[in-house]
Design a protein around this nucleic acid. Structure first.
Length: 297
DNA sequence: AAGTGAACCTGAAGGC
DNA sequence: TGCCTTCAGGTTCACT
């Protein structure tokens, strides 16, 4: 599921439920996901109050009233859902127990809101590429999972000059460079394809070829940086993209998938006015790339 | 050193 | 219906 817009959507769903809540109990239903859970995972969370739910790149960062800090990654198929106790039924009976049984529910956080309401936040991840780790607040920025991350493609930090510098001299395909989380943190397969289409740049060209040693001539990098920022902003606004899984914590869908210009549109016409090209699919470093060979050069 | 491909794991979808 | 292959929004690790 998750690139930056999906993770941000999850964060926004979790925030009102989790911030200020007390963690009464944590059910850890298996010893590992992608990595083993930290030692005494449930014990170190039990009794803590949640201070904030943040995000860095594709990571969710949950700050508590004191250490540890909880770092979560959704992998390919991870999702959170929030379940509320229904007032009209027996206490302790939660909605999902009367609906679909939930395979792959690996972690359940039992929360109590300041007003007394009880919630469950459930982490589900069929493929188990997700993970949960601890850091201490003081060492968070230097945590191995976070220390090497590049610039966020949100806000104004990523401009043409910065992107120009990041890509200069790189021999890897432009597509691969944009997926490199140590350069730009948060892009994934969908939004790289979409941004390159908007910038009319080929995913196949060498990354360094859009960079310029000459100061004033960062035209391609300017265009690409703007395309990246725009596609990410629009996708966040749309609540992310929902393909095979639900994105939102309430089970509803994102709708940016309806705005795809190239992703998963192999054989369909290019949406650039007057282009007339056809969307092609190629494989780069083991992953599908969708692009228009006519207008993306 | 940088760049490429396999591996991790499950489920859905398509072909026969 | 069932079996087989391919593919999937990510990251890490082992090779060239």
């Amino acid at each position: 599921m998750p690139e930056l817009p999906e993770v941000e959507t999850v964060r926004r769903g979790l925030q009102p439920a989790m911030e200020g809540a007390l963690i009464e109990e944590v059910e850890q239903r298996r010893p590992d996901l992608r990595f083993p859970f930290p030692a005494d995972f449930a014990g170190r969370l039990r009794g803590r109050a949640i201070a904030s739910v943040g995000r860095r790149a594709k990571y969710l960062i949950v700050h508590l009233d004191r250490d540890p800090v909880l770092i979560c990654h959704l992998g390919m198929s991870g999702s959170f859902r929030i379940e509320t106790e229904e007032e009209s039924t027996t206490p302790g009976i939660f909605h999902h127990e009367r609906s679909k049984a939930a395979a792959h529910d690996h972690v359940v956080f039992h929360l109590k809101r300041p007003e007394g309401e009880r919630l469950r936040v459930v982490f589900n991840d069929p493929r188990r590429f997700g993970f949960m780790l601890f850091s201490d607040a003081a060492g968070l920025a230097s945590h191995p999972m976070l220390a090497e991350l590049g610039v966020e493609p949100t806000g104004n930090a990523l401009d043409g000059a910065l992107l120009n510098g990041l890509l200069a001299g790189k021999q890897a395909p432009l597509k691969a460079a944009l997926l490199d989380q140590t350069l730009i943190a948060g892009l994934g397969n969908i939004y790289v394809c979409e941004a390159l289409w908007r910038a009319r740049l080929s995913p196949l060209r060498k990354a360094g070829s859009i960079a310029s040693a000459k100061k004033p001539s960062t035209a391609r990098a300017d265009t690409l940086a703007q395309a990246i920022r725009e596609v990410i902003a629009e996708a966040v606004e749309a609540g992310g993209s929902s393909l095979r899984d639900y994105v939102h914590t309430d089970g509803s869908l994102g709708y940016f998938q309806h705005s795809f210009a190239v992703y998963d549109r192999e054989g369909e016409p290019c949406r650039h006015a007057g282009c007339g090209g056809t969307v092609r699919r190629v494989v780069q470093s083991g992953r599908s790339t969708f692009y228009c060979g006519t207008c993306q050069r």
